[in-house]
Every structure is written in C-alpha cells, then in structure tokens.
C-alpha cells in the first residue's frame, strides 16, 4: 500500500461526487443491491456444494452465525473496544500534531521553513516499514500501535491543512485588511474558516489511514483487539472469524467516514446551500 497515494492532498472539490450520484437515482436505489445479493448467493451455493472449501473461505451463513456467537460470548465487543481505543488515542494525538504543525507552517514563513522540509522528508518514509524500529524502541505494548496510528493520521491532516491555509483567497485577506482586522482576527475570521474544507478532506483521508495503520499494527504481537482476534483465528483455520473481523473493520471505517460527512455538512453549510440550489 502506498503512503504517497493516501496523503497527497486532494483538492477539496466543491461537492463530494457521491452525494450527486445518490441524488441521480432516487427511486431505483434498490437496483444497486441486486448484484451484491447475487454474489453472496453464489458464494453460499459454492460453499454448500463444497466447491469452496471452508478452509479457504467460510460460507456466508456460517459467518453470520459466528458473528452472533462472538457477540454473545463478548469476544467481539471487547476486541472492538480495545481497537477503538487505540484508534481514538492515536488519532487524537496525530490530529493535534498534524493540525498544530500545519498552523505553524501555514501561518508564517519562518514556521514553514522550519516545519515543512522535515514533514516533506518524513512523508516519503514508508511508515509501515517503521514497525520493526517502533518495536525496538517502544516494545510490543500499546505504545507502538498507538504511535503508528498517530503518525499515519498526522500526515494527511498536516498536508491538507497546510495547503488549505495557503490556498485561502488573498483577495479576502485584502478585504480583512481594508476593514481593519488585525492578524489574529484575520486568522480567526478568514484563514481558518477558509482552510476548513481542505482540512476536512484531510480528516477523511486520515481516518481512512488510521484504520489501516491499526490493522497493520495489530498484526504484530497484539494480545487483544480485532487484529489479535483475526490472527488467533488464522492459527485455527477459522476463516469465518477472520471474515467477521474484516467486516467489523470496514464497518468501523464506514462509520467514521459517515461521522466526518456529518461534520462536513454541519461545518460547511455556507457551501451546501449554494450547491443545493
């Protein structure tokens, strides 16, 4: 997986394409469910007939039953709680670092000269490759996992917030000057709100990589959490448990993405009403 691909700032498009696509086919949404359902059905048939051995991939029905069992036994909720906590702590730390550094670099030339070269160098590092070093430095406890998440999160947020600050319309800054706003007020009223759309793009990217980083980190020496559950299942060839774990990962990913969308809707009303016209 490529780090570059994930944290290259994408220009904040005036509209997320998904929303438009959804609007285009309001009455025919159910048609989009046909092909996935057919696929699951085919999978089930293949499993039942023995065409697809359970050793490689469990049947959808088995997976569903296992999911229920795991929830009832408490294994899954505990694993989710542990993983969620790692992501939360790592994300918070990474977000503070990423946005904080972007403010330092974005708001002054000196700050940019100090921070940006280092960030540009570090972002070229394949940070999943840092895991061996992290283990040497921090052992195999929570620290390396949380730190890997934090590191993964900080770059997209840094790059996008920095680009957002620098992309603020200079003409609005001139307006601020002519109406007598000082530097602090300029930052508060013009620069930060102007950078927000791009920061939210960064937020979405960073949440995506946060889960990715967690999955990778949890493959290594975890004794709790979703990654541990999956790894443990591999030992016993429990493909059903593995698939449940993967599904939970993606559900959590989708959930956080939805949260950011909600945040975007709230924070960018000024743009949304314009687009809704």
């Amino acid at each position: 997986m490529s780090v570059l691909e994930l944290d290259t700032p994408v220009r904040a498009e005036p509209h997320p394409g998904a929303r438009i696509r959804r609007r285009r086919l309001p009455g025919k949404a159910w048609q989009r469910w046909i092909s996935p359902l057919v696929l699951v059905l085919a999978w089930q048939i293949a499993s039942t007939t023995g065409l697809l051995p359970t050793r490689l991939l469990a049947a959808p029905s088995t997976i569903a039953a296992t999911a229920v069992d795991l929830v009832q036994a408490g294994t899954l909720p505990t694993a989710i709680a542990v993983s969620l906590q790692r992501v939360l702590i790592g994300f918070t730390a990474g977000a503070i670092a990423g946005v904080g550094l972007a403010l330092v670099a974005g708001l002054s030339r000196k700050g940019e000269n100090a921070v940006d070269p280092i960030m540009q160098m570090l972002r070229a590092l394949p940070f999943f490759g840092l895991i061996p070093l992290f283990i040497l430095w921090f052992g195999i406890g929570e620290a390396p996992k949380v730190l890997l998440v934090a590191l993964a999160v900080s770059f997209p947020l840094y790059l996008n917030t920095f680009a957002g600050i620098r992309g603020v319309d200079g003409k609005l800054a001139e307006v601020a000057r002519t109406v007598g706003l000082g530097r602090t007020q300029l930052i508060r009223h013009i620069v930060l709100p102007g950078a927000l759309p791009q920061t939210l793009v960064g937020l979405r990217q960073s949440l995506g990589v946060a889960w990715l980083a967690l999955i990778v980190a949890e493959q290594v020496n975890a004794n709790a959490g979703l990654g541990y559950m999956i790894n443990d299942a591999r030992e016993f060839l429990r493909t059903d448990v593995i698939v449940v774990g993967l599904l939970v990962y993606s559900a959590l990913g989708l959930l956080t993405d939805a949260l950011v969308r909600l945040l975007e809707r709230r924070a960018l009303t000024w743009r949304r009403e314009f687009l809704a016209r």
Partner: peptide, 26 residues
Amino acid sequence: SVAVAFQEPRLVPWKRVHANITLGLA
C-alpha cells in the same frame, strides 16, 4: 479612514450577509 468596495464583491463566503457587513466594524 478608508473603505473600499472592490470590483468583485469579495464577500466572505462563510459569513452570512449581515456578518459580512459588520466585519471589523467597530
């Protein structure tokens, strides 16, 4: 004191119209 109405309106997009009018108004 100087006040300017620029050639393009240059309203601050994330401030409602009245907040644009009062921007920096002491």
